[in-house]
């Protein structure tokens, strides 16, 4: 078959029949993949769902993650935990700040994605700005919440007794369904600011920003495995998120009381913390607080023997 393209007229000659081709460029569409251990794999299940907007327009094929993707993500998160939690708190703050910088540079892309998902322009711009500010907020708290929530405790023995918060470990998070970007960042930032690692299930209806945010994380010096982002169905994955023995806490942001009950039941298996953020409006200042960091912290109290203590006169 003879085929030739003439540059000047932008027409194609196929079997002698002249065809005009449109000068419009064919857009290159992004494959929305999941984010595990610093890599962007497709779901191991090979399944997809179509993300659509309110008008029913197809936005993207999005991975329908399986329990095995979650399993792999937990392995990555567990492996990353030691390095991340032992990192200097100040350095964690620098990295969160870096995430904000990267997000700032890609504002337009995120605004555009939110608008594709039916968010009005003004609201989308506000959401992106708020998301950046929220990262800065938690970047600041990284090396400060310990001072606020630690204590030296008065005891009646010759001990120096003090309590400090420590990260609880691997946290599984089911992100808010609304606010695809801001909701995700509002729940992830306090968890990683406190030295935990996490696996987060992005909003099922608004998943685009979550995958793009993974690219921001990937270029912000966040070690692989600290944040793992899956896309898929809450109904399919929620029980795995809360039953995994190697997960230390689960965060759930919806009001579904049946799911909440199920989570509390299954979490008992290894005495996980279960945290419900079903009343927080992420678009206001109540969506950010050092107490949200403390939700995934454990208090460790140390009894350190000392020679003398005021008043006791006792020697050790």
């Amino acid at each position: 078959m003879e085929k030739e393209i003439k540059k000047s007229s932008l027409s194609v000659s196929e079997n002698g029949i002249e065809k005009k081709i449109s000068p419009k460029r064919l857009e290159v569409l992004k494959t929305y993949k999941i984010y595990i251990g610093g890599q962007f794999p497709r779901t191991e299940s090979g399944r997809y769902y179509v993300a659509v907007n309110a008008a029913g327009k197809q936005l993207a094929n999005v991975c329908l993650s399986s329990r095995k993707d979650f399993r792999d993500a937990v392995v990555s998160a567990r492996n990353a935990f030691a390095g991340w939690s032992e990192r200097a708190a100040f350095n964690r703050g620098q990295i969160l700040y870096r995430m904000a910088e990267m997000l700032e540079g890609r504002k337009i892309q995120f605004t555009d994605e939110l608008m594709q998902q039916d968010v009005p322009k003004a609201k989308a711009e506000k959401e992106v700005n708020l998301a950046i500010d929220r990262l800065i907020y938690y970047a600041g708290w990284c090396d400060k919440y310990q001072q606020v929530f630690s204590a030296v405790n008065p005891v009646a023995t010759s001990h120096f007794n003090f309590s400090v918060p420590e990260p609880t470990g691997v946290v599984s998070i089911i992100a808010p369904q609304e606010d695809g970007l801001l909701g995700l960042i509002s729940v992830v930032a306090p968890v990683i600011a406190g030295g935990n690692t996490c696996i987060v299930l992005a909003s099922g209806s608004k998943p685009l920003c979550a995958v793009t945010f993974a690219e921001v994380i990937n270029s912000s010096d966040v070690p692989g495995g600290v944040v793992n982002i899956l896309t898929g169905k809450v109904s399919e994955l929620s029980s795995w998120f809360v039953s995994h023995m190697d997960v230390n806490a689960t965060i759930y942001c919806e009001k579904d009381s049946t799911v909440q009950k199920m989570m509390q039941d299954k979490a008992a298996l290894n005495v996980k913390r279960v945290i419900f953020y079903d009343k927080i409006n992420w678009n206001t200042d109540e969506g950010q607080s050092p107490y949200l960091i403390m939700d995934t912290q454990e208090i460790k109290t140390t009894w350190h023997p000392i020679e003398h203590i005021a008043g006791s006169g006792g020697g050790y």
Binding site: R71, W240, M245, D246, K266
Partner: peptide, 9 residues
């Protein structure tokens, strides 16, 4: 047990 396990146990 039907649930994923943790090495600590």
């Amino acid at each position: 047990t039907g649930v994923y396990q943790c090495a600590s146990y």
